[in-house]
């Protein structure tokens, strides 16, 4: 077995933390991702993750808990996006883009301060590309708590979320407060992307969000089944990626390959595989 699980894989504390937090991030992202695709908000999910990196860099600068840094920035931009919300999809995307640009500009500035004031040159890497094996163990309870909270909110809003996604007019007639549900959903989304931004990095957290869900939705049309499949794919890719990255220290001596690369590759493979397995049918436009 040692050629699959390199020595020390199960006993190393950083690996255990990575498996725990990464797994949590993968599960929450996969669940949120299915709704993100159904609601057509992939860009918003990507933007929230990118913008949260400003919070991550601020946390580096002021020495606060990075999770709180990522989270507060993501929630803030979710509020801005929904607060100035536009009805038409193209305008919504435009506003998302503007928030994204401003947020990334802020990230650039904060990282510059990080480098010049504190000499933490690694901050840019850690924030943008994640630091799976360098997660502080103290973060675990908070991270898992946030993930659980997000899942509970999704569970409570399950039916209204689906209804609003499929037909907002009917949802409104049946007494669902469409805008409120939209806001709640964006907040859940920011929780999910925060977790994955912490683990595989801000610019790749979109992989955990969109990848497993897109693959699952090719196989299953029913939301419940799709969610279960997405969780399986996400969890598999995340844990598989951690394992491969750990093993890669042996392939190229003294120099591991990045976890994020393996996770993205596995997700992409899963997406291709589901394309082969999916029943051939005319494009349903969805």
């Amino acid at each position: 077995m040692s050629w699959i699980f390199a020595e020390g894989f199960f006993t190393s504390a950083p690996v255990q933390t990575a498996l725990l937090v990464g797994g949590g991030a993968a599960v929450v992202s996969a669940v949120a991702g299915v709704f993100t695709i159904i609601r057509g908000q992939s860009f918003a999910g990507h933007a929230l993750a990118d913008v949260s990196s400003a919070g991550g860099s601020a946390a580096f600068l002021f020495g606060i808990n990075p999770l709180l840094g990522f989270l507060s920035m993501a929630v803030l931009s979710a509020l801005v996006m929904e607060g100035f919300g536009a009805k038409r999809a193209a305008e919504r995307d435009l506003l998302t883009g503007i928030v994204l640009g401003a947020g990334l500009g802020l990230t650039a500035l904060l990282l510059y301060f990080d480098v010049s004031a504190r000499g933490t040159a690694g901050a840019a890497i850690a924030v943008m590309f994640g630091s799976m094996f360098a997660i502080a163990p103290g973060i675990v309870p908070l991270a898992l708590g946030i993930g659980l909270g997000a899942l509970v909110v999704i569970g409570l809003l399950y039916r209204p979320l689906l209804l609003c996604a499929l037909n907002p007019d009917i949802a409104a007639i049946r007494g669902v407060k469409v805008r409120l549900v939209g806001l709640a959903y964006l907040l859940v989304l920011s929780l999910a992307v925060t977790l994955s931004a912490m683990t595989i990095g801000a610019i790749l957290s979109t992989a955990l969000l969109i990848g497993p869900a897109a693959a699952a939705l090719r196989l299953a049309r029913r939301p419940g089944v799709a969610i279960a499949l997405a969780v399986l794919i996400g969890l598999g890719a995340c844990w598989g990626g951690i394992l491969l990255a750990y093993d890669s220290y042996d392939w190229t001596p003294g120099h591991g390959w990045p976890v994020s690369f393996f996770i993205v590759s596995l997700i992409f493979l899963a997406y291709l595989a589901t394309g082969l397995a999916a029943p051939r049918r005319a494009p349903a436009g969805g």
Partner: peptide
């Protein structure tokens, strides 16, 4: 052709970024 436009964009983006991460490392 097989996906919603934005999902296609997201999938392309993450794949390229994953490659970039590898080259960078």
């Amino acid at each position: 052709r097989r996906q919603r436009n934005e999902v296609a964009t997201a999938l392309t983006l993450i794949t390229l970024l994953g490659l970039g991460t590898l080259f960078l490392s």
